[in-house]
Write a protein that binds this DNA or RNA. Structure first.
Length: 813
DNA sequence: AGACACTGCCTTTTT
DNA sequence: GGCAGTGTCT
């Protein structure tokens, strides 16, 4: 994050804090030094809020106003938490130890593990991610034959999630639902059953982690009091994205402590600020930071009112506004302000910068998504040649599926990139399988995991056998897992009995390693050991190795990587247990994997981009139906949320912002005509330098065969040429575009389905080549080796390009 | 039980 | 254009 420049000298009377206060502007200074029960910091994009937050924490610690253990700082991602911890450590050193800096979810897991026994769970409960709960709900929908009432698993899941975010349960929902509607009754049944199943499996889903903690606090005030005593300073980042459950959690934690409750943790090293003479302890001091313009998670229950009504919720709260932006140039900010200004119903807030106007925003309209991607790749290379590292560039898009076209072109152009999010490592089938093995050991009550591994690898166990096991378990009042220990009694064939017996033995052997019956605590390396044993002795690895599916090779590698993860885990957590490992994995999101192994361009959705910043940013697919997304139109507040999302995207840029779109886009195999996004019209025309405007493409598009990526010199500002600035009406009538789309398949840069393989085509500097899209050119240099050899080519019309020799559509002349 | 082919639906966004 | 879920055949 950008540091604030020197503006205000440290105030006197704050000895020992000068370095903390140095360089803060007056508003930032107040945000760091104000003391009181409640503080709201309204922090515009790039206004140095992380800096303010970390200095505020450091200042509390240095002045001995708080012990580290009395501080609870909440962020939304583990990455943000890690970063904040690091920066606090930079300021105060090891004193930072003992603070809780974590996400809502990890903080709740910590509390729940500690208190699980209080309400019918065990410490080794598992955490269901959305995939897990979808699987469970799918099963329930089927069992309840609810599809006949139009209930889909997806809709049911999202409805349950929404209700949980409102802290509703099946019972409370049933009370106010229209129970004469049979579909509604079905839904209530499933909701209740889902919750029963979770409890039976000793599991929480993501929403429960928060909701059940609130429930715990409300049902057991004494338990809540121990945490209220402990956490005297609570700080919440990204407050605009909190949902009702999270809001309630904060509320519970900041209540005053009722007088009598003895503190079971007091002897345990927990700090109580005042000696025990105090009959009552007032509520913890609360600091929240947020920006309602960056609220982009309403779809998962974030309630913007949490921030807009903060002053009402916490009377006497101080509000500090940070409006000076230390990140972006003024052109970028002006565009951002202009866009967000179209949202009505918002408190006016204008970001400003003293960094000067900076470069104009670059606009580009491609004929196809591939053409657009080529523009991005070319521009990335051009920036690289000016000395900007790849790691300082990022490409954003609205939906994950848009990454494919970009990837294809980036590979061809030999631009190093990494994708944040997308197909997640921990969502791959083989990883989920391996994790299910571990869970089956750690939490045998988790029937879903046991079922999952039942026939992986193939043991000849199908539906029939699975049902037989379940029935046997039910009839005998034992768990599904326990039934596996008595294969002889299940009434299945001898071959299958042997398979089940083997699985049972492997699980038991792993249990001895991970949770020894002797009761001693195994070393943290046992996780790696147990995992290795499980995937080897179960036959899982062998089955993959024996397979002739080429993808299975990659799966073996992924499993190797998972084992490597467990080794890392052991190294980083000398006291770590299997349960700790499972928790960590369940709570890592992709935004957390943003390790800066510098040297590659980052690609991600605009949602993932929140909180990050780059020198150069490419916002792609700036089209109607994409941003704003088509589906958002139906949702209340949808278009406004989309606008905020776009705003988040553009405010990530420090120096250079590129907005691009395509005139046609292939969506599920069909080419559709795309319209420029309405948000583009909201940016003043003089801020944008259109390399190729929507007007250009429309008027000279389909008929011209000139090289697509040749730069148009100078470029007229604004949309279209000759003054018919885009925006008067939505570009051109659709009919005018139709012929364009049909001739589109002739356009270059269309990525052909099959991968070309030039084998070991030899190229050296000076060679002349012909490229099927870019025409003729001369090789400047060849770098890299093997399959990764890259030709640097100067084309006559298309300019400088890098090409991956192995797959480029080229021939030597 | 498992391999394979077919079909329908799809894509918001994530802790 | 891909994937998951379903159906059919061995």
């Amino acid at each position: 994050m950008t540091e604030a420049p020197l503006i205000v000298p440290a105030v006197p009377g704050q000895q020992g804090q000068d370095d903390l206060l140095a360089g803060l502007n007056p508003q930032q200074l107040e945000a760091v030094t104000y003391r009181g029960p409640a503080l709201l910091i309204v922090a515009g994009a790039g206004s140095g809020k992380t800096s303010v937050l970390t200095r505020r924490i450091a200042s509390l610690l240095r002045s001995r106003e708080a012990w580290p253990s009395q501080i609870l700082a909440i962020t939304f991602t583990n990455k943000a938490a890690g970063e904040m911890r690091e920066r606090v450590v930079d300021l105060v050193g090891d004193a930072a130890r003992g603070m809780w800096i974590s996400t809502f979810h990890s903080a709740c897991v910590r509390i729940l593990r500690r208190e699980a026994d209080q309400f019918g769970f065990t410490k080794s409960f598992t955490i269901y991610d959305s995939g897990d709960s979808r699987a469970l709900i799918k099963r329930l929908v089927k069992e309840h034959e609810a599809d006949a009432y139009g209930l889909t698993p997806a809709a049911t899941q999202s409805r349950i999630s929404k209700l949980k975010n409102e802290l509703a349960d099946a019972e409370s929902f049933a009370r106010q639902a229209n129970m004469s509607d049979p579909a509604e009754r079905k839904f209530v049944e499933i909701f209740a059953d889902y919750q029963r199943q979770l409890r039976k499996a000793n599991a929480f889903d993501f929403d429960d982690l928060i909701g059940q903690t609130v429930f715990l606090f409300r049902a057991f005030p004494k338990v809540a009091d121990t945490y209220r005593r402990r956490f005297r300073h609570i700080l919440v980042d990204e407050y605009q994205d909190t949902n009702h459950a999270q809001y309630s959690l904060i509320h519970e934690l900041t209540r005053p402590v009722s007088s009598d409750a003895p503190d079971p943790y007091a002897a345990n090293g927990m700090m109580i600020f005042e000696p025990e003479t105090t009959p009552e302890l007032e509520g913890a001091s609360l600091t929240v930071v947020g920006d309602s313009d960056q609220s982009i998670y309403a779809f998962r229950g974030a309630d913007i009112r949490n921030i807009s009504e903060f002053e009402r919720d916490f009377p006497g709260a101080r509000v500090v506004l940070l409006e000076q932006n230390y990140r972006s140039t003024q052109n970028i900010l002006s565009a951002a302000n202009a866009v967000i200004g179209n949202n009505f119903d918002r408190k006016d807030k204008k970001l400003w910068s003293d960094r000067g106007a900076g470069d104009k925003i670059v606009g580009f309209t491609g004929y196809s998504q591939h053409d657009e991607a080529q523009f991005v790749a070319d521009e990335v290379e051009a920036l690289r040649r000016t000395g900007m590292p790849y790691s300082e560039m990022a490409v954003f898009y609205r939906t994950n599926s848009q990454s494919r076209a970009l990837e294809e072109i980036f590979i061809r152009s030999a631009v190093p990139y990494k994708i944040m999010g997308g197909t997640k490592f921990y969502e791959r089938a083989e990883i989920k399988d391996a994790m299910a093995y571990l869970i089956a050991v750690a939490n045998p009550a988790d029937e879903m995991s046991v079922r999952r591994i039942l026939n992986k690898p193939r043991r000849g166990i199908g539906d029939v056998t699975e049902t037989a096991i379940a029935r046997f378990a039910e009839d005998h009042g034992i768990s599904f897992r326990e039934a596996l220990s008595v294969p002889g009694q299940l009434g299945v064939g001898p071959k299958i009995q042997a398979g089940i017996g083997h699985l049972d033995a492997v699980l038991k052997e792993a249990t001895e390693i991970l949770l020894p019956s002797s009761g001693e605590v195994p070393p943290s390396t046992s996780v790696a050991e147990g995992l290795t044993l499980l995937i080897a002795k179960s036959g899982y690895l062998d089955a993959l190795r024996a397979s002739r599916d080429p993808q299975d090779e990659a799966r073996v590698e992924n499993l190797d990587e998972l084992v490597a993860v467990t080794r890392d885990f052991a190294r980083n957590n000398p006291d770590g247990t299997i349960v700790d490992f499972l928790t960590e994995v369940a709570l890592v999101a992709d935004a957390d994997d943003l390790d800066d192994e510098s040297g590659s361009v980052s690609m991600m959705t605009m949602h993932t981009a929140k909180g990050l910043e780059y020198d150069a940013v490419f916002v792609t697919g700036v089209e109607e139906d994409l941003i704003p997304h088509r589906i958002s139109a139906g949702e209340p507040g949808g278009p406004q949320e989309e606008r905020r999302l776009f705003y988040v995207g553009i405010t990530r840029a420090r120096k250079r912002l590129h907005l691009s779109l395509a005139m046609t886009r292939a969506q599920f195999g069909e080419v559709t005509v795309a319209m420029p996004s309405r948000f583009l019209q909201e940016i003043p025309g003089d801020l944008v330098d259109w390399r190729q405007s929507p007007g250009d493409v429309n008027s000279r598009g389909g008929t011209q065969s000139r090289a697509l990526n040749a730069r148009r010199g100078g470029g007229s500002g604004g949309f279209g040429s000759g003054g018919d600035r885009f925006g008067v009406k939505p570009l051109a009538p659709r009919d005018a575009l139709k012929p364009l789309s049909t001739s589109m398949d002739k356009f270059p840069n269309k990525v052909t389905g099959k991968v070309r393989d030039n084998g070991d085509l030899e190229l050296t500097a000076g060679d002349r080549i012909r490229h099927s899209d870019f025409g003729e050119g001369r090789v400047d240099a060849v770098t890299g080796e093997g399959a990764k050899r890259i030709a640097h080519v100067r084309f006559e019309t298309a300019g400088l390009k890098k090409l991956l020799i192995k797959i480029a559509p080229i021939e030597k002349l």
